[in-house]
Design a binder for these strands. Structure first.
Length: 912
RNA sequence: GGGUGCAUAGCUCAGCGGUAGAGCACUCGCCUUACAAGCGAGGGGUCACUGGUUCGAUCCCAGUUGCGCCCACCA
């Protein structure tokens, strides 16, 4: 019924948000979706992310908030370009064969074809997003936002162009920002090389031998006595036929290696700094693909071919003093393709992050933005407080082109979206595009119409909550903070923040806590689960595993458990409807008269205010089990409400699960059964079946509302059937409301009933104790047993005799009652007449029947096995299965014979 | 290299100064008229190790060991 439900919701416009609706009693609640790659598809990480967001949105809607959840997708520059390039490569083409314009056209075309798949998948998950507001980071409006903020930052001197050592991917052929580089400890070798000769020689150590071709100095620490005599002298650089100076620089650590460092300003960020300080030249010896360009025997070699070649040449000259191998050290890799990053001297655009990052840190420090869990804030500060300038230019074609034009005489002109770009002889636009995260950083306000002053922006900015994985705290969250605070600064410091709360969740892992990866083969496709177990079960599994900032382990066993929970709700609702607890069409009719006669206790649709009004104080007029379940409902409502408010999804789900299954189904429904069937079982002074019917319907109604945010489909299906209402989406949330209220006629607090909880608690303990006895004694659950509840009159359970007997299948003592055993609990001594109740003859007959079946099974299995031993290549699995059957059947025979011999001998005199 | 987190039942995890909990898995019994994808009853843990604080420590402190994560320009 999921697809049908979703269509219903969508066509009824239940997800739309109108800024005009915002008012004091319907305040705004807004979220933007972390835009997935437009050409991507839904994976478990999205499913988790979206489940949590959807739960928040649905609850807020029920609370009465004007709720906007805005969907959209990201153009994902480098990732998307790579995919399309791979596609081209399959037909032997590169992007250069097409040319820029054609290539970009091709990407758009690809986006049109395969893009948006994930949007359809979001419907399967049940995402209650406002589809009318779907955005794409390359939309015209969002591109305007990009250009606007670029221009503003440029004019403020916060964007600059400089020649720097940047991270370069020789495969993607583009610059990368620091966080697009992944470091790992790789095996390399540390080689010590002698530069110069005789007394004028110095030994340097390096892991990158080939870069020595570009050395322009050797650096030592200024206070190092070993080398002070060499500072300022020139040394011979082996293989290169050049002489390079020895310089003194405090950056050098005299403790490390020989205390002398070779300096390659064009190929190492540290060395670049040293070179700047000492005015050293930069010798570029490699091109953008990592191929050696230095003249000599190594010209044309790839960097990894050049390394052994240079090493061999040095060894031949006797320059190698020592080699240490393997030598583990950190190496950077391209976050997108894994290629070893090459530090490269190049001219790029940067964002000067100093003031922006400071503001981003302060917003969290002074509580304008709260990060959940709070511990994650430390990580955020570490990063934001010590951030390098952000390299934003990418040598790609797919993305927002840098809005800067270069004039014939070296002029630089930055154009805003409404400016006429400089034209004429010799003017050209910068060929590069912006880092994908540049446009993502604007997402919370660019999607609402910024830079225009729109109603959406006024109503829904700042957004309320940002839900995302902690893995993109730096990539995305920190940058939205920087740009949001900067772009919206005119709103004042409080209203400029992009969001009030950041709710972080973890990664989805497998059942053993291992990261999901294709190579490990442990990935799970959420759509496969949705097909097989339902979206509700999938969502519940994810939400139940998600504590703030914590990773979520999932497995098929667990989603099956969640599926079972859905079924449990389904069956409980069926029970309620069968017993006339519904208010929908055709429900409650047969008992309408009885209900009318019971003042103020009609069906569940109107039950809440009526129930509350009819009950002076704590629901005293109701049967105790009903008072108990209402009290429990009040408690779990308050608990769930508070937990969801704190983003404690796992605990909220757990609380609801236990309430629904253990308390409502396992106890309350069992207690309600006799009450519904036999009103005479009611305690003294208690109203009968009609009251229980109302309470049953009422509690189920509230339970379905509480579960709806996490399990939207099944709860709506059941709730509409139960109540006859339009949709549970529009029903009021049982906890606190948008105006902060939670008291008044709608409050459940009045149902808190410690006396009822104590009585039912005692009843539960007593019943469990007797059940244990029955189980130990092998008394079948359905077997009635005559019993006396001695001493019960003096306990709080006095009024519950009939209920206890019904739950335990205890009958009244017959004339010949002769107790054979007793169980004591809660001040009651339950005396049972077991001997008289076991129908020994019937039991013997039953056991003998089972025994015959088991013997036949043994026979059959033995025959099967015997025949299989003659069949050549009988499948091992089949043989094992039959062997298992045989063993199980033999064990069964042992068990049954044991039971038979344990049966009491047939009574000498027939029972009366 | 710098941070930081975690070690509790077979697995994944809650708990947190005072008789150890959940889900799944496991054992036994049961097709008891909402549900066998279910019902009832069970078994299972020197709460990593060593010290300390305390009347009392799984919980607080210190150290040890083993994992994990984040950051990182150490040749």
């Amino acid at each position: 019924m999921e697809a049908r439900r979703y269509e219903l919701w969508e066509s009824a416009g239940l997800f739309g948000a109108d800024p005009a609706d915002v008012s004091a009693s319907a305040p705004a609640f807004s979220m933007v979706i972390p835009p997935p790659n437009v050409t991507g598809s839904l994976h478990m990480g999205h499913a988790l992310d979206h489940t949590l967001m959807d739960a928040l949105a649905r609850r807020r809607r029920m609370q009465g908030y004007t709720t906007l959840w805005l969907p959209g997708t990201d153009h994902a520059g480098i990732a998307t370009q790579n995919v399309v390039e791979r596609e081209l490569a399959a037909s032997g083409l590169s992007r250069h064969d097409l040319g820029r314009e054609k290539f970009v056209e091709r990407v758009w075309q690809w986006k049109a074809e395969s893009g948006g798949k994930i949007l359809g998948q979001m419907r399967r998950l049940g995402d209650s997003v406002d589809w009318s507001r779907e955005r794409f980071t390359m939309d015209e409006g969002l591109s305007r936002a990009v250009q606007t903020i670029f221009k503003r930052l440029f004019d403020d001197g916060l964007i600059y162009r400089a020649e720097r050592i940047i991270n370069w991917c020789p495969r993607c052929l583009t610059a990368l920002s620091d966080i697009e580089v992944d470091h790992s400890d790789d095996d390399g070798e540390l080689v010590s090389i002698r530069y110069g000769d005789g007394a004028d020689s110095i030994v340097v150590a390096t892991t990158r031998v080939e870069t020595m071709l570009g050395d322009t100095a050797v650096a030592v620490h200024p206070d190092d006595p070993r080398y002070s005599h060499l500072v300022g002298r020139q040394l011979d650089l082996p293989l290169a036929g050049r002489r390079i100076p020895v310089v003194a620089d405090p950056h050098v650590d005299p403790e490390f290696g020989t205390g002398a460092v070779k300096v390659t300003p064009a190929h190492d960020p540290d060395d670049f700094e040293i070179g700047q300080r000492h005015g050293l030249p930069s010798a570029v010896i490699m091109d953008e693909r990592g191929v050696i360009t230095a003249h000599g025997p190594f010209l044309g070699l790839d960097r990894f071919e050049a390394r052994p070649a240079v090493l061999a040449a040095l060894r031949e000259q006797g320059r190698i003093v020592a080699e240490r191998r393997p030598y583990r050290h950190a190496v950077g890799h391209c976050g997108r393709c894994g290629t070893t990053v090459e530090p490269r001297l190049s001219l790029q655009w940067f964002v000067k992050v100093g003031p922006l990052a400071k503001a981003a840190g302060d917003a969290v420090r002074d509580g304008r933005v709260r990060i959940h869990p709070g511990e994650m804030a430390a990580r955020y500060f570490d990063w934001v407080d010590d951030m390098h300038d952000w390299c934003i230019s990418r040598q790609l074609w797919w993305g927002h082109r840098i809005p800067v034009w270069y004039g014939p005489d070296g002029e630089i002109s930055c154009a805003g979206p409404d400016d006429e770009p400089p034209a004429g002889e010799g003017w050209t636009q910068d060929p590069d595009v912006l880092d994908t995260w540049f446009s993502s950083a604007l997402w919370p306000f660019s999607t609402l119409g910024w830079p225009d002053d729109t109603a959406d922006l006024r109503a829904f900015y700042p957004t309320s909550v940002l839900v995302t994985g902690y893995d993109i705290l730096f990539f995305w969250v920190a940058r939205m903070m920087m740009f949001g605070l900067y772009a919206m600064a005119d709103q004042g410091p409080d209203a400029a923040v992009p969001f009030r709360h950041v709710a972080l969740h973890g990664l989805v892992r497998d059942a053993y806590g291992k990261k999901m990866s294709k190579s490990r083969g442990n990935t799970v496709d959420p759509l496969d689960w949705i097909d097989r177990f339902g979206a509700d079960a999938t969502r519940f599994t994810l939400a139940r595993g998600s504590s703030p900032g914590g990773d979520v382990a999932i497995s098929e066993d667990w989603v099956a458990g969640a599926r079972n929970f859905c079924n449990k709700l389904w069956n409980a609702t069926r029970f309620a409807l069968l017993n006339g607890a519904g208010a929908g069409p055709g429900q409650g009719g047969r008992d309408r008269a009885a209900q009318a006669g019971l003042a103020g206790l009609p069906g569940p649709a109107a039950a809440l205010p009526v129930l509350a009004a009819a009950l002076p104080g704590p629901a005293a007029a109701l049967p105790v089990p009903d008072r108990w379940i209402l009290s429990r409902l009040a408690a779990v409502t308050a608990e769930t409400d508070a937990l969801l408010e704190r983003f404690e999804f796992a605990k909220a789900c757990d609380a609801l699960y236990h309430f629904a299954w253990d308390e409502f189904c396992d106890w309350y429904l069992e207690l309600a059964k006799p009450a519904l069937a036999k009103p005479a079982l009611a305690g003294p002074g208690e109203p009968g079946a009609a009251a229980t019917r109302s309470v049953l319907g009422f509690v189920l109604d509230r339970l379905l509302r509480l579960l709806h945010p996490v399990m939207p489909f099944v709860t709506d299906e059941l709730w509409t059937a139960l109540t006859g209402g339009e949709t549970v989406l529009a029903a009021a949330w049982p906890g606190r409301r948008a105006d902060g209220g939670g008291s008044g006629p709608d409050s459940l607090a009045a149902f808190a009933d410690p006396a009822a909880e104590a009585e039912i608690g005692a009843l539960m303990r007593l019943v469990t104790e007797v059940r244990r006895f029955r189980s130990d004694q092998g008394l079948r659950p359905a077997q009635p047993v005559p019993a006396v509840l001695a001493g019960i009159e003096a306990t709080p359970l006095a009024a519950h005799q009939a209920r206890i007997r019904a739950l335990l299948r205890l009958t009244g003592p017959a004339a010949d009652f002769a107790p054979t055993a007793s169980v004591q609990a809660e001040g009651v001594t339950v005396q049972l007449d077991t001997a008289a109740t076991i129908d020994v003859a019937a039991e013997r007959r039953r056991l003998e029947k089972d025994l015959a079946a088991a013997r036949a099974e043994v026979d059959s299995a033995e025959r099967k096995l015997a025949s299989q031993s003659f069949i050549e290549r009988a499948p091992a699995a089949v043989v094992a299965k039959n062997a298992g059957r045989l063993a199980a059947a033999r064990a069964e025979i042992t068990r049954i014979t044991g039971r038979l011999s344990g049966l009491p001998p047939p009574p000498s005199t027939p029972a009366p």
